[in-house]
């Protein structure tokens, strides 16, 4: 029996180790090594930090990096602010069938590819699009208005794309909050605002954290939305990685860029977990 259990254990452990080893850990180590390689001649390489030097030395790269980080944080905050009241409504105000129907409605757009969602926004925002025509019809604009190809359009797209990943964890944590606790807050003389601050938000914290992490990650790593909705000047860091790898075929520099992106996301995720006293196992698992 003992040896059978051991055999079972190793049989179950093998796929996990193969998966994590061959597809996650070793590829990242390999990518790290590649990013530390500098080409000195035809087929000749030395180990150096030159690729990272290029990254820090070129203002365009640094600027894009910072811009992507700041805009992703902003997108996360906006998503949270928009999603919270809706999640609260679904979890605490709606009852029975309405609640499950509303919850399902929130999920529907995300059964559809991100490409389709972005395409929808392009149709709405472009010069010949719906919003532009509406504004002209209402007499608020004299000619066609181009709302596509700028940072605001990117923001709209990012917020829309990641909405689900904020609403679902929020609804789940808010549902577990007992109504009696909120009532007690009011009975003890709290106002709507103080109940929100002292009771509801602290209770929803795990949901807020896990939602924010996922939304931030999705925004940071997004390629489609910035490419389709953004203009010429609105570069996203993933576009730099793509162009180094696929267009310029400079894999060494591309790998260094990939690591900077990974580093940035790890630092922000780790920092958020630290600040709020959560762990990855609890927020994700």
């Amino acid at each position: 029996m003992q040896s059978q259990a051991r055999l079972g254990f190793f049989l179950l452990l093998t796929p996990l180790l193969l998966w994590l080893g061959l597809l996650i850990l070793i590829p990242h180590v390999d990518m790290a090594l590649l990013s530390l390689r500098e080409r000195v001649g035809v087929g000749q390489y030395t180990t150096s930090l030159a690729n990272y030097g290029i990254f820090f030395g070129e203002p365009l790269y640094m600027w894009t990096f910072l811009r992507t980080a700041v805009m992703s944080v902003l997108a996360t905050v906006i998503t949270l602010i928009i999603a919270f009241p809706v999640a609260y409504y679904i979890a605490k105000m709606a009852r029975g069938r309405t609640r499950s129907a509303l919850f399902l409605l929130c999920l529907v757009p995300f059964w559809v590819s991100e490409l389709v969602r972005t395409f929808g926004w392009m149709i709405l925002l472009r010069e010949t699009g719906l919003f532009s025509s509406l504004l002209q019809w209402a007499g608020l604009a004299t000619g066609p208005v181009e709302m596509l190809y700028n940072d605001a359009a990117i923001m709209v797209g990012l917020v829309y794309t990641s909405m689900l990943f904020m609403v679902v964890p929020l609804v789940t944590t808010l549902e577990s909050l007992d109504d009696a606790v909120i009532e007690a807050g009011y009975d003890l003389g709290g106002s709507g605002l103080s109940v929100l601050r002292e009771i509801i938000i602290p209770h929803a914290m795990p949901g807020i954290v896990s939602g924010s992490i996922v939304v931030f990650m999705l925004s940071l790593g997004n390629y489609l939305t910035p490419t389709m909705l953004g203009g010429k000047d609105s570069l996203w860091f993933t576009e730099l990685i793509y162009s180094q790898f696929i267009v310029r075929f400079n894999w060494e520099l591309g790998a260094a860029f990939g690591f900077m992106l990974l580093f940035l996301s790890s630092v922000i995720v780790w920092g958020t977990l630290r600040l709020t006293g959560q762990t990855l196992e609890r927020t994700m698992g």
Binding site: L23, I24, P27, H28, D30, M31, L34, I213, V214, M217, L220, G221, Y223, T238, I241, Y242, F245, W251, G254, A255, G258, L261, L262, S265, S266, V269, L280, E281, M284, G285
Partner: peptide
């Protein structure tokens, strides 16, 4: 859990490399 917090594009290039 890590693959959830690695940007998809980074996963892609690491496997490519």
């Amino acid at each position: 859990l890590l693959p959830l917090v690695i940007p998809g594009i980074v996963l892609g290039i690491s496997i490519l490399v």
